[in-house]
Amino acid sequence: MRLGIKEIEQILPHRHPFLLVDYIEEMEPGVSAVGYKCVTFHEDFFRGHFPQEPVMPGVLTVEALAQVGAVAILSLEENKGKTAYFGGINKCRFKGKIVPGDKVKLETKIVKRKGPMGVGEATAYVDGKVVVKAELTFMVG
């Protein structure tokens, strides 16, 4: 199931410039989602991070992973119209840079859920190589 920007905007409250997912390639509601961010030189953050060597900020990659996970969790019927908030970021490791021209694969699997709280295992890839891994805790509210 492919979701474009219009479908993603029906699930997430985020909008440009903070919507960091271009499309969802596959999704199983409440279980997992795989999305992509196509990084261009025109991203607002490259003006200051860093002008001489543009690199996507790691925290924005973590946010993009969280947004992909939020698409999965907010696609459940009982969560439609709600917002998923960060509860924590654990075991986060940055293993590579994301630069203009990269197509970032964002994969988040929901591994634990209890009431409105949950945990997702999230991994970002560029050209098949892991660039970010993290465990993201969320709360649906």
Score class of each variant (00 low, 15 high):
I24Q: 11
V59D: 04
D102G: 08
T61I: 15
F138S: 02
E135T: 14
G35H: 02
M27L: 15
G4H: 03
V55D: 05
P51A: 10
G69R: 11
G87V: 02
T83R: 05
G118P: 09
V132A: 08
F46P: 03
A124Y: 04
T61L: 15
P100K: 12
K133F: 00
V140P: 05
V119C: 05
Y85V: 00
R15T: 05
P17G: 10
L65C: 05
F45Q: 07
K80H: 14
P57G: 06
R15L: 12
I73R: 04
F86G: 01
G58C: 12
G120A: 12
G141Y: 12
H49D: 11
V132P: 07
K80L: 15
A122V: 03
G35W: 01
P29I: 05
T83V: 14
I11H: 04
V140W: 12
T123Q: 07
E7A: 09
V99T: 12
C92S: 14
G30K: 07
L106Y: 04
V99N: 03
A124G: 13
V39Y: 12
K129F: 04
L20K: 06
A64N: 06
G81Q: 07
R2T: 11
V130L: 00
L136E: 06
P54K: 10
V140C: 11
P100V: 13
M56W: 02
F45H: 09
E28K: 14
Y85F: 15
V21D: 08
G81C: 12
Y125E: 06
E53P: 00
E77W: 04
F45C: 11
D22F: 01
I89N: 13
K112F: 15
L106H: 07
